[in-house]
Amino acid sequence: MNPVKLSLSVMTAAAALLAGSATGGRAAEAIKPAIVYDLGGKFDKSFNEGVFHGAEAFKARTGIVFGEFAPTNDAQIEQGLRNFARKGFSPILGVGFDQAEPIKKVAAEFPKIKFAIIDGDVNAPNVQAISFKEYEGSFLAGALAALTTKTDKIGFVGGMDIPLIRKFSCGYAQGAAAINPKIGVTINMTGTTGAAWNDPVKGGELAKSQIESGVDIIYQAAGATGIGVLQTVADAGKLGIGVDSNQNGLHPGHMLTSVMKGVGVATDKTFTEALNGTWQPGNTVLGLKEQAVSLAFDDENAPLISADIKARIDALQADIIAGKVAVHNYAEDNHCPL
């Protein structure tokens, strides 16, 4: 292929890209949103996929297409952000705390481009940082588990042992202790590498050993590893608690609830704000109050939860929202009071 032809084909590709993004209709004020996923990849059945579905919802409503990039190493995160910024995409959404540093850097280089980050903490005039109070949802899950358990032993299986997951486990343990200070909470982490997010067999083994020690309810925050946890729990006739999205339907009758994290809603929100011109930089922390973190109550788990228990959970939720019950955030001091 000669150089002229080569550059021509690249140009046509670029033209096609531009044409694609212009099909949004509102040519003048249309935005060009983009997503840089985290290293877990786009289709992880939870976190990244939630962002993708949020962006798809935005696309379905507005007809505006979005750019996306799935980096495979840390250097590519920054590269991807910068590539989108150079091509004039805005807002650019980075998924996951890994992107805090790269976004800080690239946002400083492109002050006119809007950036957003999920789960990260970036203070810059053109960055919207969205994080979630996972510990609040986990607290309620712990309380619900403590109210439901027959053995007074509940369990937690996390993915990779990082502060984010300890936020979940610490909230869960606090919620359980709020109901019953003597309850036994077994906490296991699957591993210390990224593979810990994608090891359902090991997740199942951890769940099995917890069940053997008397645990009858297990909460998983372990990505695809959690699929194995929930499967094992269901096979053993015990109860599981899902995470991030509503997983109640996975094993009806064996899923106590799911702690939902509204990453898709947050994605849709930041894109929509940018479109409407109401986009604001700054930190947004979404929790129970904003309904961005919640327990899933639906037909699937209704038979498992009595009206009494539901009322106590609702009361706890109201107390947390009103500030009467304080849930400690592990990430604040890397310490869990329990």
Binding site: D121, I162, P163, N334
Partner: peptide
Amino acid sequence: MVYLLVHPLIEPGQMAP
């Protein structure tokens, strides 16, 4: 390394190890 980065070496108050 994960132990060291989650416990003694981590920059306090932030999420990433």
